[in-house]
Design a binder for these strands. Structure first.
Lengths: 206, 206
DNA sequence: GATTGATTTTGAACAACGGTCAATATATTT
DNA sequence: AAATATATTGACCGTTGTTCAAAATCAATC
């Protein structure tokens, strides 16, 4: 067979990612084979290899799309300048996304590039952008000049929330309690502890 | 070739797990192939299949050993009946283990059984035993009759700690801060928030 | 010691995998 | 119309997990 004019290169790129997404939503990482993706878009496996470096590259791109979806789902939330309320809403939104897109979200962490290869920069930026959402919520909590503490708090909360969602979807730890309640508890009491500490160091013995 | 008398069935079982552990420590999940494990113990691949159901089963057993190691590493810690100090020590011990055994610990979560198969009961029990260590630290914090709150707190802390370690070893989120500090912050302020809330509901307006 | 029966062990075989590439068929330019 | 560039493929390679009949050995019996 030779050249076709059915689809442009960009169209093929999107078609492949779309097919891969549908397969991943059904069967997870295990179902994502080159031949199956290719068959789903009506091309042969070889065609995928002049769109992507290899199958890992395709999956990294698919994961990028998932991160974009997650960002869109969370960035549209209102935010009323109350750190605790905003963080709670963000956490619930994050949990809701991982529930609604369990297989795709799992793929973000189930997939590992062989041989210690690092992820591309744009991938880390997409994650950083998500972390930034949490950071923004904390702006009113920490005044100016306390950016380091704010970033630290965002990272702690983000990592913790991440752990809850992972243990949930991977079913590695039996949690007989909905993670929504756990996340609420985390945000509420961790912030309360921070407030106490801040108040003490400000109003107490300096 | 036929039957040999070199090793008993139990010896072979241990040899296979030991070989698999060494391979996993070097090359992670990707290096764990049936033929490679078999070659390392001087047998053919087929022999592994009358020791284990399949390769997934072998890895689940290997993961069980890793959970045992982790438990031994954490259970030997002293514990001086001060919840915050004990929890901090436990968290640091956990982090130290994941650092020292990064590849093996990763295998616990990198590996997924195909087709929604659940993990065996004994596996969940090994995890529950670890969670129990955290629970025990909290006994003095919550008095009797507050077991539900205690379990809840242990789960929140465990999940959160888990998330930090995962993001660290998987390098999915660039953390420009050692997770030891993040874990310390988590334990310290989350507990402080709990204390405040408890004190308020006890001493304040009922 | 010889014979029988139960167990291990193996190498060959299978289907499916990721990935490569020369051959080919079409699009595009000259 | 001829020449050139590009996209697509099917055959192919090595490797994977897994199965299984054949063969070799151990254990028990006569």
């Amino acid at each position: 067979m030779g050249r076709r004019a059915d689809h442009s290169r960009d169209e093929l790129f999107e078609m492949a990612l779309s097919a891969a997404r549908e397969i991943a939503e059904e069967d997870g990482l295990g179902g994502l084979t080159a031949r199956r993706i290719a068959a789903k878009i009506g091309y042969s496996a070889g065609t995928l290899y002049n769109l992507f470096d290899d199958l890992d590259d395709l999956i990294v791109h698919l994961n990028g799309r998932t991160l974009d979806s997650l960002y869109e789902a969370l960035a549209t939330a209102p935010g009323d300048n109350d750190p605790e309320a905003d963080l709670l809403a963000l956490a619930q939104g994050y949990i809701a996304f991982t529930r609604a897109n369990a297989k795709l979200w799992n793929l973000l962490f189930e997939h590992h590039r062989p041989g210690e290869r690092l992820l591309p920069d744009w991938h880390h930026q997409k994650i950083g952008r998500l972390l930034g959402l949490m950071d923004e919520c904390l702006v009113p909590f920490f005044g100016p000049g306390r950016e380091a503490e704010r970033n630290h708090t965002a990272r702690v909360l983000w990592s913790s929330l991440h752990g809850m969602c992972l243990l949930q979807t991977e079913k590695k730890l039996i949690l007989d309690e909905p993670i929504e309640a756990m996340a609420t508890s985390l945000v509420k009491y961790y912030l309360a502890g921070l407030r106490t500490s801040t108040a003490e160091s400000a109003g107490g013995k300096t």
